[in-house]
Write a protein that binds this DNA or RNA. Structure first.
Lengths: 260, 260
DNA sequence: CGTAGCTTTGATTGTTTTCAACACATGTGG
DNA sequence: CCACATGTGTTGAAAACAATCAAAGCTACG
């Protein structure tokens, strides 16, 4: 593994505040709880595109907070084929569930060149034990992940390739914008077609044809390696995209943690 | 809804102890925590096969503990078609994640005639706040659910109908045995082919043909409405079934909650 | 009986995979 | 600079898989 270039940094404030921002989207946290998140210690690691961060079967002792780039959680079939089941971008704590299930049946890989903060499980567990609201926030974060997974599981069973691909683009665009990434820099547009195939559960050949179909429909534009959104409304209508499952949440819901 | 026949019962010890048993499979709980679970108050409800318990979009204030029967969590497509994404059997707290995400984008329906205990979210939240280990146990339970979902999402994308159906039978058989249900009484065997289609993301017609193929292969037996396992090993090999994702867990892992 | 729901079977259509080949860019060593 | 390998994108043809449409048989139940 040539990419184990780790640095023990003292200031990780930027990615940690992105993570805090993400938690605050769906959970209400007081000053002490917010400071506890921002005070987490972590190791910064740079990961080149395509590299594995966690191998299936590893027992991990940390979660990975994505600072920049795009990380995928994948499962490996008996024939060695990969299926990427979840995607994580800046501010996402990928594999937060590994805090409660440290023996992973899955792996983590970098879809594009990324930097991640490795946050020790022990620290996250202590936070969850000391601050019940943080325990709820972590649990909620895992649940939102599961909602996204359920959505993609539904679509993959019932919709054709064009709808699936359009839906993926819509979801990643919206999620990127939620953390302040501009539409031009959305990581999914830089993934190879083979990687898109791993995500969508299609063959690379069919991803290629489907991209061509989306271009023909006027939803996306740009030839070759990269593409961009040409018409958001067309894309949304092809995808039948309804963002409700991303659970941006309302203040009333967030207050429930403290209602007891 | 003719099935709103609720009874406020004083003793729900049996299903609650099944739920506790399920939690103890993966989490270490002390005497006080165990008593807290067993002391939960709840309303018993009987639900006929096919009835909806939660409609998508409802804001629910309780989780449903399955006492007997089989419950499915489903999403509805734009064309009204249902996709069942998770299955819950005796001892499972279905929709435990709704404690942290009360506005459901999904629904719950009874696959077979069932009895459920409605447990108020407020009580579960109080338990999570009072006992950090219970908060971790609930979180872990949600994470295991997500693992099962990830597994089925992987298989549905990469394997054909025969493998998927065999895998479903294997999984439900094993999960049933984990809570002490005998192989003859496994609920999935009583589901209609239309229901199996909703679960697997296939058409009822194709489920029928695939069941016939499994019979031909000698994996299952019995004509018409119901079937049974004829040869477990054949079934496992068709399904390429590896139960590791069910996370039965080891004692060492369970101790981590208290390591802090 | 007769109906309603479920199962079974057949024929046809559509989507996706598979296999195969070629184009195109990038990077390397000669 | 060229030859060459490698990875990625593109295109075509054939085959596999599942959906769709249609019809008939079976069961349970009133």
């Amino acid at each position: 593994m040539g990419h184990d270039r780790e640095k023990a940094m003292t200031s990780h404030s930027e990615p940690l505040s992105l993570f805090l921002k993400r938690l605050l989207l769906r959970s209400e946290l007081d000053e002490a709880e917010q400071q506890a998140i921002l005070g987490l210690r972590a190791h910064l690691q740079e990961v080149p595109a395509g590299a594995d961060i966690v191998i299936p079967g590893d027992c991990v002792e940390y979660s990975c907070l994505v600072a920049t780039g795009l990380i995928g959680r994948f499962e490996v079939m008996s024939d060695g084929q990969r299926q990427i089941v979840s995607l994580y971008l800046s501010g996402d704590m990928c594999d937060l569930q590994s805090v409660v299930l440290p023996v992973a049946g899955w792996g983590l890989e970098a879809i594009s060149a990324s930097t991640v903060l490795k946050v020790p499980h022990a620290d996250l567990r202590r936070l969850a034990a000391d601050f019940p609201s943080l325990a709820m926030a972590f649990w909620r974060d895992t649940a939102v992940d599961a909602c996204i997974l359920a959505k993609s599981a539904t679509i993959v069973r019932r919709k054709d390739a064009m709808c699936r691909l359009a839906h993926l683009i819509c979801e990643m665009t919206l999620r990127s914008e939620m953390v302040g990434i501009t539409r031009e820099k959305i990581a999914i547009f830089e993934a190879s077609q083979a990687r898109l195939a791993d995500i969508l559960g299609l063959t690379p050949v069919h991803v290629n044809r489907t991209l061509a179909d989306l271009r023909k429909a006027g939803a996306i534009e740009g030839a070759g390696r990269s593409f961009a959104i040409a018409d958001w409304n067309t894309l949304v209508s092809i995808a039948e995209f309804d963002p409700i499952y991303l659970v941006t949440g309302t203040p009333e819901e967030r207050l429930l943690d403290r209602a007891g």
